[in-house]
């Protein structure tokens, strides 16, 4: 019986609450087309590398664990998987864990974001002499 309790076809509210969107093992799925395969030539932009560095530093300093990052990624919900890029989701997870871990406050973050935005829209603007 495939519509039994705890099968992927169980659509009861309890099951949907307990089975978070990332927990997709057992779902039906079609073939993967060549277009869907990862582009191995993809180069990372500077901000993406910085997100990665921030994750490593925050983890090394004990502000969070991989489990804390996973929890926030799961909390973002299925829509985030469709609408945000990989590192956009990562920075959401790293930021929330850093705030929860006491690295800085939301107010600190707001002040810093205003400061950075004032430098200009591009890295070129930011580097230009005032």
């Amino acid at each position: 019986m495939n519509n039994a309790k705890n099968s992927p076809n169980d659509h009861s509210p309890t099951f949907k609450l307990g089975r978070r969107w990332h927990d997709m093992g057992g779902d039906t799925a079609g073939p993967i087309t060549m277009e869907q395969l990862a582009d191995t030539n993809h180069d990372f932009s500077l901000w993406e590398k910085r997100v990665d560095a921030l994750m490593i530093i925050g983890s090394a300093k004990g502000f969070f664990t991989v489990d804390g990052l996973r929890r926030v990624l799961e909390d973002l919900g299925e829509d985030a998987f469709e609408t945000m890029t990989y590192y956009e989701r990562w920075i959401m997870a790293v930021n929330q864990n850093l705030i929860e871990g006491g690295a800085y406050t939301t107010a600190d973050l707001a002040a810093k974001m205003s400061q950075v935005a004032a430098r200009g829209d591009t890295y070129g603007d930011a580097a230009a002499p005032v």
Partner: peptide, 10 residues
Amino acid sequence: MPPGHVRTPA
């Protein structure tokens, strides 16, 4: 089926 982060596949 608790809501929240667990590592046991549904």
